[in-house]
Computed example of a mutant assay.
Amino acid sequence: MEGIVNLPLFLVSCVALNVMPGPDTIYLVTRSIAQGRRAGLLSSWGLCTGALVHTFAAALGLSAVLSASAHAFSAVKYAGAVYLIYLGVKTFFDKSGPLPTDNEPAAPVSGCRIFFQGILVDVLNPKVALFFLAFLPQFIDHRAPNKFATFLLLGAILVLFSLVWEGILVLGSSRLSGYFTRNENSGRRVNRVAGSIFVSLGVRMGLV
């Protein structure tokens, strides 16, 4: 492809980066187990949309601001950490539970809310922004006539790999939710586990 160098290496890197477990993977798997396939897929689409936002921002050079300014980096990092902790606490104390139990029907979950939560989780992680800024330029030919378009293309390819891999994770993880739906009070138990994981992710993001 015009403007791209070492395309085979880039494609292999895309596979390796997606298969490697990370905070996004934990978030996605937890969502899928706790709330099923629909929530998992919506979360995946939200995370990938957030990745596209990072790609566009990095292509414009906005991510360089995070790299150059410690205050900007810290502000975005702590905002993301607080948001994850908020999600965790909210999920932990949700008494209704997202899963249907033997005694009560499942509480309706807004698809838009799940989708936008995924976007925020990804967008408010400055390390993702810096990753795109550091990783993608390595595969852009310095003689490329339109580096902006090439940057966006590479980001789109990486996100496409993410969609495929995360879809596999969601399908596998959501099967476990069927087990919990057959057990009384399972929704509340899963909420507590999921909430604890979200809080731990937020604390980790804020401290690292």
Rank of each mutant, 00 (worst) to 15 (best):
F161I: 07
L152P: 02
G155V: 05
P126C: 12
H142Q: 13
L153E: 01
L152T: 00
V164F: 08
V121M: 11
D122S: 12
G167P: 08
D122C: 14
D122R: 07
L136N: 01
L160S: 13
L163D: 03
P145Q: 00
F139H: 07
Q138W: 04
I157E: 05
Q138P: 12
I140G: 13
S162Q: 13
T150P: 14
F139Y: 15
S162R: 10
D122T: 14
F151C: 05
G155A: 08
P137G: 14
I140T: 05
E166C: 04
F132K: 00
L158R: 03
F132P: 06
I168Q: 01
K147Q: 14
L163G: 02
H142I: 13
P145G: 00
F135Y: 14
G155N: 01
V164L: 09
A149Y: 00
P137H: 15
S162A: 15
H142T: 13
N125M: 10
A149N: 00
P126S: 11
I157L: 15
F135P: 01
L163E: 04
L136F: 13
P137C: 14
F132N: 12
V121C: 10
P145E: 00
S162G: 15
T150F: 15
G155D: 01
K147N: 03
L130T: 03
D141V: 03
V164H: 00
D122V: 12
L163P: 01
L136G: 05
L169K: 11
L136A: 06
P137Q: 05
K147G: 13
L163C: 08
V159R: 05
T150H: 12
L154H: 04
A144L: 07
L153G: 04
I168H: 01
V128N: 15
F132H: 10
G155Q: 04
I140W: 11
F139M: 14
I168A: 12
V121F: 10
P137F: 15
K127S: 08
W165H: 05
L158I: 04
A129M: 09
F161K: 05
A144H: 00
F132E: 09
V170C: 14
E166V: 01
F161H: 06
F131S: 10
F151W: 09
K147E: 09
F132L: 15
L130Y: 06
K147R: 14
I157T: 06
P126M: 13
I168S: 04
D141N: 10
L158E: 06
V170Q: 04
D141T: 05
P137E: 11
H142L: 14
P145H: 00
A134R: 11
K127H: 11
N125P: 10
D122L: 10
F132V: 08
K127R: 15
F148V: 02
W165C: 08
I140E: 13
I140R: 03
L130Q: 06
L160E: 01
A156C: 11
G155H: 01
I140Q: 09
V170F: 14
L154D: 02
S162D: 08
Q138S: 15
L133E: 09
N125E: 03
P137A: 15
G167I: 09
A149G: 00
A129K: 10
L124K: 06
N146E: 00
A144F: 02
L154I: 08
N125F: 11
L163S: 03
F131I: 08
V159N: 02
L133S: 15
V159E: 07
N146G: 05
V170Y: 12
V170T: 06
F132G: 05
W165N: 04
L160V: 08
